[in-house]
Structure formats: C-alpha cells, structure tokens
C-alpha cells in the first residue's frame, strides 16, 4: 500500500495561484471557498490581495504561504467525528463521506490547520450571490428558457465513491450543512493520476508521490533536502512537507 505525501517547495512557487483556481474549477467550489490557498506574506487586515510584502522598501522579500489539508497520519478530525463521516484510508488520504456528514463541525474545531469549510448555505446560492456581486448590467441576461444547459455548473460532473462512500462530488451540487475539504483528488489518485494542483503547478513547486517507494521523486527529495511540516509538535503527523524558502534575491548588496 502506498504512503502518499505532498511536498511544497517554496523556492519554486511563483505565487501565481493556478493551484487554487484549478482546484476550485475542478471541484466546483463556489467563489470565495478554496480548499487550498496561496498567500504572500500577509499584511494585517488585507485578505487575498494579489501583491503584498513586508519590510521596508526595497528590502521586501515575499514568502508564499500555502495551506492545504495535511492528510495527517494522526488526524484529529477523524477522532472527533461522531458519525464516522471523516475517515482515513490505508494510503493516507483523509476523506469525508458527504452522505454521512451531519454538519456538527467538530472536525473544524479539531483541525489545527483551518483547512475545512462548512457550507453555511447551498453552494449554488453562494455562486448566485457572487454573480450578483459582479453587478452585471446586461438587460438581456439569459433567461432559463435560453440556457443551452439549464443545470450547468462548473466542476467535475462525475461523482466518485470509495467503497460505497461518496467522497467526491462537485461542491456546487452539494447542499448546505456539511463540511468539505481537499481530497487530494482521490478520484484521480485511484486512477494513477496526480492531484490537479500538482498537475497544473507552474513552478513545479508541488510534488506528490509514494514515500514508501525509495525511487519516487518525493522520497528522493526528502532524503536530500531539509523539509518541515506544520505544527509538528501537536503530533498530528501531517503528510504535507514544506521546503522553506531560502532563495530570496539580494538587494543593494
């Protein structure tokens, strides 16, 4: 059985956020919900600004900060789930059975990484609100009778079940009151593909593979590079490894 891990090499990240958008498009996340995020070093109070830095001009190095479900080996979210909706597979993926989740949100309290999202409203309504916020002024906005495919929403339209459990479905087709999070693209992994964020990464900063295979790229990298995991002291044994950024440019030296 493989032991999947993800490596994020912050030296290679360009901060382009292609991973965020590709994930949202593929998983049908409504605008404003992201299962993985990339932020530059935050400035207090500014959320999702597309450029940001700290320090004093011109010494303003930026560090990309990635967040994604760590698929922990010792996942607190699994322990607290009262109905067994969140579970861990042998290969390490931590998944949610959307049909079992009762929306108690204990898992969100338990997760130290803040990677889970609760659907407070039907995602389609979130999308409608977002479209309203675009302030479209088109007087001939397509009516229902003119839509080529009335039920169309973006996102992978095919559901995926893991031994009967519904673990992947376009979030826009889910109803409110449940918790969602990154699945590491379970339906792709089971076909031998990589998670979509890894596939699209411009800088090839995200690397995915089997740590039990000594010849895998992840094994090779972790054997020679210094990598860290987030909040290791909590004992969650996260499976996402970060290679810290060290290659900032020199400035006026």
């Amino acid at each position: 059985m493989p032991r999947y891990v993800m490596i994020i090499d912050l030296n290679k990240c360009t901060g382009c956020r292609t991973c965020m958008v590709a994930c949202a498009m593929k998983n049908g996340l409504p605008p404003g919900i992201f299962w993985t995020t990339v932020e530059w070093t935050p400035i207090a109070g500014v959320i999702q600004a597309d450029r940001r830095s700290t320090g004093n001009y011109p010494y303003t190095p930026m560090t990309p900060v990635h967040n994604i479900c760590n698929h922990c080996d010792n996942p607190p979210c699994v322990k607290v789930c009262p109905v067994g909706a969140t579970y861990k597979r042998e290969d390490g993926l931590v998944l949610i059975d959307y049909e079992r989740c009762i929306g108690c949100r204990y898992c969100m309290s338990a997760c130290p990484y803040g990677v889970r999202t609760f659907l407070w409203e039907d995602p389609e309504k979130t999308l409608e609100d977002a479209i309203r916020r675009t302030r479209s002024s088109n007087p001939y906005k397509a009516g229902e009778n003119k839509m080529a495919e009335p039920d169309y929403v973006y996102g992978d339209p095919v559901e995926y079940r893991d031994k009967g459990r519904l673990v992947h479905k376009s979030v826009l087709r889910l109803k409110r009151g449940i918790v969602t999070k990154c699945t590491w693209c379970v339906e792709r992994i089971d076909k031998g593909l990589k998670p979509v964020c890894v596939e699209v990464c411009v800088g090839r900063a995200r690397i995915f593979g089997d740590l039990d295979d000594p010849n895998s790229e992840v094994s090779q990298i972790l054997s020679r590079k210094n990598a860290v995991r987030r909040l290791e002291h909590l004992g969650t044994e996260p499976r996402v490894y970060y290679i810290p950024k060290t290659n900032w440019p020199k400035v006026l030296e």
Binding site: M20, V21, M25, P31, G32, A49, A130, I131, R133, T134
Partner: peptide, 9 residues
Amino acid sequence: NAMMLALQD
C-alpha cells in the same frame, strides 16, 4: 468573472 472577482475581494 465571479471567481476572479472573489480572488480580489
């Protein structure tokens, strides 16, 4: 585009 706008608040 709603998604692009969401990325920029």
